[in-house]
């Protein structure tokens, strides 16, 4: 039963994926050389769309995304290396357009944050584990003389009532 559902979902996803691609080709004119086109496509996937901010320009159907796709194709056919083509866009729109931000001064926090959080989490877990395996304070300590007297008195009271 579950397997059927999962299989159905996988087929749906595959179909959706191939349809989207077919659609993208229909709108854009791909480069004639499949090698160049593949390079252009790979770059498209790395560039962030400025209009619909969390999509790559490959996925976005915004007008500017299309213009940038064409621009990248133009640069690649003009003989630009991948780095040069990406650099051309970064020169105009900044590191912001890179879906994977470069490691440098301003992004150190961003890149190191996961490691730092993992480090603190590890310390916390370590401390907690040690506490739990340590001597437990749940064992009741014996009553001292005073307490024993008070308990006796209470019990006597109850008996008399």
């Amino acid at each position: 039963m579950l397997m059927t559902v999962i299989r159905g979902l996988i087929i749906c996803f595959c179909l959706a994926g191939s349809m989207e691609q077919a659609w993208a080709v229909a709108v854009d004119t791909p480069l004639e050389d499949p090698v160049l086109e593949a390079r252009a496509r790979a770059i498209h996937k790395q560039l962030r769309c400025l209009v619909c901010q969390n999509q790559s320009i490959e996925d976005s159907n915004a007008g500017l995304a299309r213009d940038l796709r064409i621009l990248v194709r133009d640069r690649i056919s003009a003989g630009d290396s991948d780095e040069a083509a990406i650099g051309y866009i970064v020169e105009r729109y900044g590191d912001w357009v890179l879906l994977q931000p470069p490691i440098k001064g301003g992004t150190i926090m961003l890149w190191s944050a996961p490691v730092v959080f993992l480090f603190f989490a590890a310390i916390l877990i370590f401390v907690w584990c040690r506490r739990r395996s340590g001597p437990m304070a749940t064992e009741a300590s014996p009553l001292n003389a005073d307490e024993q007297d008070r308990l006796n008195a209470l019990l006597d009271d109850k008996d008399q009532a």
Binding site: V51, L71, R92
Partner: peptide, 13 residues
């Protein structure tokens, strides 16, 4: 017309 100069200016909207 084709928005190329706009891209050179960093225009996105």
């Amino acid at each position: 017309l084709n928005g190329r100069v706009g891209i050179d200016w960093g225009v996105y909207g």
